[in-house]
Amino acid sequence: MYHAIAQDIIKSIMADEYTTKLPTEKVLMQRFDASRNTIRKAIDVVFRHGLLRRVQGSGNFIIKQPANSGTILNLSIGFDRAAMVEGGPLVSQVVTFDKVQADDRLAGQGNIAVGTELYRVIRLRYLKGTLYDLEESYFPRTVVPFLSTDSVQHSIFAFLREAYDIYGSTTENYVHQVRLNDERAALIGVPVGDKTMCLDAINYLANGDVFNFSQTFFVYPDLELYYHTENIDLQK
């Protein structure tokens, strides 16, 4: 239940419903008809996604994104790509939707066994009519038994939450520059060998199983990255 509440709070923050700080725990308990423990778990999820700053004795304040860009990629929000973009939502054009078996390359990329059956989804995604990225995404069928043609047109993570109660627990992100090969360059419409920013991501369930891994090639102009970390005093 707290995952759904966290999603609702995140949507409210992204929609500027909460502009300065979250309501008190008591108010949120009444709004969601939930216990204090459930609300605190939900707030913890929102905090880990880089949207809150905790001030002891004062509450949970909204972290403002930099005002000089409307295209901020929040790497802390790894479980829902729709929430990554200011000014969204993204509109998808599905290039490929099929099933494949993991070869050595995909097994290494996704930290899975060779031969694992996967759903493969390759999409071009647009923000306000401009190409935003090329996404190559894979879902092991041992964890995700079914994806529909309609589900891959929209937020796949939202579909997984609603259909299977699948929520990501941890995400590994790796950002690097790559040169585009023939196939990717043709899809994006740029010369072969052009450099672009690439995000490699692996998404895990709480039990450690991989439910998604992907490579996303970003082409949107003036894109900025944001990442949230929590400082821990290891000497305590």
Rank of each mutant, 00 (worst) to 15 (best):
L106A: 02
G168H: 02
I72G: 05
R123I: 03
V178M: 07
V91P: 03
N207W: 08
F217K: 14
L234H: 15
M1S: 06
D150F: 05
R36P: 05
G70T: 15
S58D: 14
V175I: 13
G70R: 13
L118M: 00
V219W: 10
F159E: 15
G57V: 06
V91A: 12
I188Y: 09
R179C: 09
R40I: 11
A158C: 12
Q93T: 12
V190M: 11
I112F: 00
R184S: 07
Q109H: 08
Y126M: 05
S214H: 04
P191Y: 08
A206P: 07
I39Y: 04
A6I: 02
G189Q: 04
N181D: 14
Y174D: 13
V45C: 04
T170R: 15
A34I: 01
V121G: 14
E162C: 00
N207M: 06
D103T: 00
R161W: 07
T96M: 08
E136Y: 13
G88K: 08
I10Q: 02
T229A: 13
F47N: 03
I202A: 08
N37F: 15
F79H: 10
Y174L: 09
V27P: 09
N203V: 13
L124P: 01
A82E: 15
R125I: 06
P23W: 02
F213N: 05
G189Y: 10
K99L: 06
Y226R: 15
T116M: 11
Y18E: 13
L28G: 05
P145C: 08
T229H: 05
F61E: 04
E136N: 14
P221D: 03
E162W: 06
T142N: 15
N203E: 12
Y220C: 01
T96Y: 07
R141L: 13
A34F: 00
A107N: 12
Q30A: 06
T130W: 03
K64Q: 15
H49R: 14
Y226W: 13
A113H: 11
Y227A: 15
M197C: 01
